[in-house]
Every structure is written in C-alpha cells, then in structure tokens.
Amino acid sequence: MAYENARRWLPGALLASTLMVSGCSSSQAIEGVVRPKPGEPLLESLPGPMPGFGPFDSYSDALLSACSLILSKPNANAGRVGDQDFQLRWRISNEYCAWLYYTPERKYEMSMLTDQHKLDDLNGRRSCLLPSSVDDSRYPQDSLKYIFALHNHPYGSTISRDDIRLIVAEGAQHGLEIHTKDGVSQLSIVAFFSNRATEPSCDGFHQYIPSTHQILRWTKTENQWRCKQTGRVDWHADGKRFSITETNAACFSKGEP
C-alpha cells in the first residue's frame, strides 16, 4: 500500500519540483526580457528593437512571430482549465508584455519584453505592467508609431478589464488610429494563448480595439485563421466606467490577423 501511494504521489511531486525550479525564472535573466533590478522603480520605457526579431514588412507577420516568441518564454502558458496540474502551472505562470511599433523606415518592429508585474489576487497571479513608450536609439522617440500592446494570457482567458483600461489610456497618449504604408491601423491590445501546457504553439489571441469597441477572438485551425467578435465595450457618460456585452458575431476582417 505504501509503495502504491508513493507511485501515485511521485509524478506530481516531480512535476511540482520541476515547475517550482522553472518558476524561479522570473528573478533570473531571460533572453530578450528586461526588468528593473530589486529596489529600482518600474521601467518607464522598453528598449527596442528585440534582437534577432524582424524587421517585418507587414504587421500580421510581426504579430504572429511575436505570438510564438512570447509563448516560448518560461511559464508563459498554463494550458487549459481542467488540465492535469493546471492549478500548479497557473500559480507559477508569468505574463510578458511588449510593444509592436512602426518605424520611420516603414517597418514593423517589436520592443524587448518585460515581465515586471503586480500581484493581482490572493493566488499570486502576475499581471505584466507595460511601459508607455519604446526607446529605439535609431530614431527620435516621437517618430515611432504604436500599433499593438502585446502580452500573453497563460490560460487563454479573454481580454481583461485592466487590459481595456490600459490600452484606452495609451490611446490618449499615442492616438487610436495610426497612418502606415498599409493604410490606417487601429491601436489595440492583444493577448496571446496556447491550448497546450507543454510545447506551446500560437493557437490564437484575443484583441480589443478601442476605436471600434470590439473584443475579438482569433483562432488558428489547420493553418487557417478565423475571427469572431466575442464582446463589445460600451463606455458610460462619465468616460471612466464601462460595461461589456458578450456577443457572437462575425468580424469586420476578411479572415487574416
């Protein structure tokens, strides 16, 4: 009986040990990730561009490459709710965030990532705190145009109320519509997700676009991207409060992110 109990206990214990060791990565150096040192204030800008990433001629290529890159970082994905060991993976999961921006050379670039965070609840959930600007030494700071605020959601949850507040505040600073070589782009916030706890892939992302008030969900099936509108944000007259109405409608897009 003791032997059988040990057999049942051992795999979970080994997983817990492995995950707790990898969970310490938030205090260790991670390639492409910057964070303040202990005791220092939060970062107010992110360096750019990300080494070895881009530049890209289209924002969709940059966006999908960013999805794969961010989800590859330690503990960026906890799998699906209900998966074996999900609660443990969720407790040590980590959010990473970055800006995707447009340069004077008419290219799309991504800043380096950060995982500076606040603790959101009693379970210790980490929420990445995105600085408002990018510092790319090749260009004047006011020449950069901000397209997407990027981050991951470790278990694929939809855009949060904090996400909505953040991108609206950034829109007041950077503008909600950005003129590029591809026409007018709309500032938005994106949350990437993977359906697998191990060997995560870019399975989709949620997106909120302040200028259209839409919450979208993009998913990939057999290399085909599909989109549906899952919600609409309606702001109250005071401009500070908002409500979210769940929807199940077609997107305005032709089927590509």
Rank of each mutant, 00 (worst) to 15 (best):
L43Q: 09
A76Q: 07
G54H: 03
G48I: 02
G48R: 04
L42Q: 12
S68A: 15
V81W: 06
E44P: 01
V33L: 12
C67P: 04
D57R: 11
P74E: 11
S45D: 14
E40W: 08
G32T: 08
L69E: 10
L46D: 08
P41L: 14
R80N: 13
G82L: 10
E31G: 12
S58T: 15
P38N: 13
F86D: 03
Q84Y: 06
S72E: 11
L64D: 08
P55L: 00
D83T: 00
G32L: 10
S58R: 13
G52H: 00
G52A: 03
P49V: 01
P55H: 02
Q87E: 15
S65V: 09
N77I: 04
P49E: 06
Q87W: 06
A76M: 08
F86K: 03
P49D: 05
V33D: 06
G54N: 00
P41R: 11
L63F: 13
F53K: 00
V34A: 09
E31A: 14
G39F: 05
F56I: 03
P74W: 06
V34T: 12
A66Y: 06
L46H: 03
K37H: 12
K73I: 01
G54V: 03
E31H: 14
D85G: 01
E40T: 11
S72H: 05
A78D: 05
L69R: 12
R80V: 00
P55E: 03
